[in-house]
């Protein structure tokens, strides 16, 4: 699939924002003054907001984006939109309320966290629900999205805690390590699935031909590249993909993991790690699109499975 920058930005940044806010609501960070409130809330809203905003960039008609909230009954994109709006509103109240009046009842916090994570889930489900892209259409897709959000969010919140001079316990670091480990374990399994899954669909089922032999594509319908080929036909070559997977894993997993394992609570270093991690996730997200094969490419003569 064509890796549109706006969508890659959107899913990475909003994912991080949602993950981060989950931990905020969980109570990881202690907001002591107005200054810290502005930073924490600002960080949250910037991440989520810029993600959402950039997602409208790839729309043909962003001015009508509001219409996207209407089809929550069937469309994951609609659901995600509505949830995002709800979550943003709720978070605003949450920040104001907790700052003013202190903690909210656990049940409310849990509900809010669920909503946030469900938003991430909805984002993932936009892709995971597409039968046409076999590698997306698996249970692990939302799991990965959620794991990236949670682990990234945790890393971000650790960083912010260190800026705020809050004590970061070693168990915090241990949780972080476990989360990073798990995230990449899922992601690696996802890649494994991508490499090994076999779609039921092939050119023979796509065309209904193949009664007496192989089917191959002979002529494209147009010699000039069309929307479908640009949008669905983009598949990064295996050899590049492997290189990029290694880069992504190194930046997003190994470096953060190793650095944290060695032990650091320097906010500068944590900031750098967060940035490197983000870069890794970015590559991961790019690959998520670039490696994905749309079933339509069968019609255009792609011989390998989708």
């Amino acid at each position: 699939m064509h890796p549109a920058w706006s969508i890659i930005f959107f899913t990475t940044l909003s994912g991080l924002g949602f993950g981060f806010s989950t931990w905020v609501v969980f109570g990881f960070i202690e907001i002591r003054n107005i200054f810290q409130l502005i930073i924490t809330a600002g960080f949250t809203f910037c991440l989520i907001g810029s993600g959402l905003l950039s997602s409208t960039l790839h729309l043909g008609h962003p001015e009508r984006a509001w219409r996207a909230l209407s089809q929550w009954r069937s469309s994951w994109l609609s659901r995600e939109g509505i949830l995002s709006v709800l979550v943003l509103t709720a978070l605003t109240y949450w920040f104001l309320y907790t700052f003013r009046y202190g903690e909210l009842p656990l049940l409310i916090n849990i509900t809010l966290m669920t909503m946030i994570l469900f938003t991430v889930y909805a984002t993932a489900m936009i892709y995971a629900s597409l039968k046409t892209v076999t590698c997306w259409n698996q249970f692990l897709t939302p799991v990965c999205y959620l794991m990236f959000a949670i682990s990234g969010g945790m890393l971000a919140i650790t960083w912010l805690m260190s800026i705020f001079g809050q004590l970061i316990t070693s168990s915090t670091f241990q949780i972080l390590l476990i989360l990073i480990l798990l995230t990449w374990a899922f992601k690696i399994k996802w890649w494994w699935n991508l490499d090994h899954s076999q779609s039921e669909s092939n050119l023979a089922t796509a065309t209904g031909l193949g009664k007496f032999g192989k089917v191959r594509s002979l002529m494209p319908p147009h010699t000039s590249e069309n929307y479908l080929q640009k949008e669905m036909g983009f598949v990064v070559a295996r050899k590049h993909a492997i290189k990029l997977r290694v880069i992504s894993l190194t930046l997003g997993g190994i470096i953060p993991f190793a650095t944290i394992l060695i032990g650091t609570s320097s906010s500068l270093l944590l900031g750098i790690i967060l940035f490197i991690h983000l870069a890794g996730v970015f590559v991961e997200r790019w690959l998520f699109f670039a490696e994905a094969k749309h079933i339509v490419s069968l019609y255009y003569g792609d011989k390998t499975s989708v």
Binding site: L59, H61, I126, S201, Y227, E231, I295, V296
Partner: peptide, 23 residues
Amino acid sequence: WCIGCGLCAWSCPYGAREMDPVE
């Protein structure tokens, strides 16, 4: 009503939808 998000084209297995490059 269409916002041009392209999702419907992604969901169509047949490549039957195309985004208009100008409109």
